[in-house]
């Protein structure tokens, strides 16, 4: 697959394989993200798209494959069971700080206030001074429209608000790449818009984003590339106008029409 932009490759992922027991979930997935790319990863449930995203920051251990961020290759070695394992824990931790993740179920720390959720990473992991972190966290909360909720606990917020806090928490790490794992799938329909709006503004300011999603509007209108996965392989990948074009992929067309049926049902 040809790179679609001239910017240098930020995240390079090559030949990722992953099995859960006998179930071969990922069968060699390759993806290069250049700076500023917003890549929507689509696919039916069970196609492996979330697993692929979680392999990138090693929340799942890929069995095979290579991952590098800004030219730095993640060191892996064969473990006792023949599958790969990270060779250098410190490197994994350092690379993870540069790949922030936003989860489907928000995963905010419920025992901390909104502001504390944003401070934890920068202060304890990046060891930045508190005053600086607080200032930046408050700016981020302003940006996602939740500055006045900074002393609230996550359980006191709506799903959409929690996800916006989670996005601000990810931004507080000043990541090079942001990984979104179905960020709107757990939300009530009327709350999806406020989260997508924040994500759109991130895309517009040129952040590098990988977004596993079911939001066709976002994939078509906001992302500059779309990757459609089917049963653990990439079925089609490219700019949205090409992928969404009639006749590009029969499987993708079926996927889209089942989505539209569900939306209109």
């Amino acid at each position: 697959m040809l790179p679609t932009s001239a910017a240098p490759v930020t995240l390079a992922v090559a030949g990722i394989h992953k099995s859960f027991g006998d179930h071969h979930v990922l069968k060699g997935i390759t993806l290069n993200a250049s700076r500023g790319d917003v890549i929507s990863i689509l696919g039916a449930s069970g196609s492996g798209k979330s697993t692929f995203l979680r392999c990138i920051n090693l929340l799942e251990r890929p069995d095979q494959g290579e991952i590098s961020l800004d030219g730095e290759k993640l060191q892996m070695r064969a473990g006792k069971d023949g599958r790969l394992e990270p060779a250098n824990r410190a490197q994994v931790e350092r690379l993870r700080t540069q790949m922030a993740m936003v989860f489907q179920s928000f995963n905010l720390w419920t025992h901390m206030t909104v502001l504390q959720n944003l401070l934890e990473g920068p202060m304890r992991v990046l060891k930045r001074p508190r005053a600086e972190c607080v200032e930046e966290a408050e700016q981020l909360l302003q940006r996602v429209g939740l500055y006045d909720r900074r002393d609230h606990y996550p359980t006191h917020l709506s799903g959409g608000q929690q996800q916006r806090v989670a996005i601000a928490r990810a931004l507080a790490m000043r990541p090079k790449v942001m990984l979104f794992d179905e960020p709107t799938s757990a939300l009530d329909p009327e709350l999806v818009g406020e989260v997508l709006k924040v994500m759109r503004s991130l895309a517009e300011e040129g952040r590098t984003m990988l977004v596993v999603t079911h939001e066709m509007g976002f994939a078509r209108n906001v992302s500059n590339r779309v990757m459609f996965m089917h049963r653990g392989v990439v079925d089609i990948e490219g700019p949205p106008q090409d992928v969404f074009a009639a006749g590009a992929s029969e499987r993708f067309r079926q996927f889209i029409s089942s989505h539209e049926e569900r939306a209109s049902a």
């Binding site: 920051n57 929340l59 824990r89 994994v92 931790e93 350092r94 690379l95 993870r96 700080t97 790949m99 922030a100 993740m101 989860f103 179920s105 928000f106 995963n107 905010l108 720390w109 419920t110 025992h111 934890e120 990473g121 304890r124 992991v125 928490r169 790490m173 990984l179």
Partner: peptide, 30 residues
């Protein structure tokens, strides 16, 4: 301790010790 809260710490690059001290222990003790 909810798995997701642990994953949020891991994904942020927390070391195992930081994760234990800041996320797992406060929630588990409570």
């Amino acid at each position: 301790v909810p798995r997701g809260q642990i994953e949020a710490g891991l994904a942020m690059g927390m070391s195992r010790w930081t994760l234990l001290r800041c996320v797992i222990a406060p929630v588990a003790l409570r």
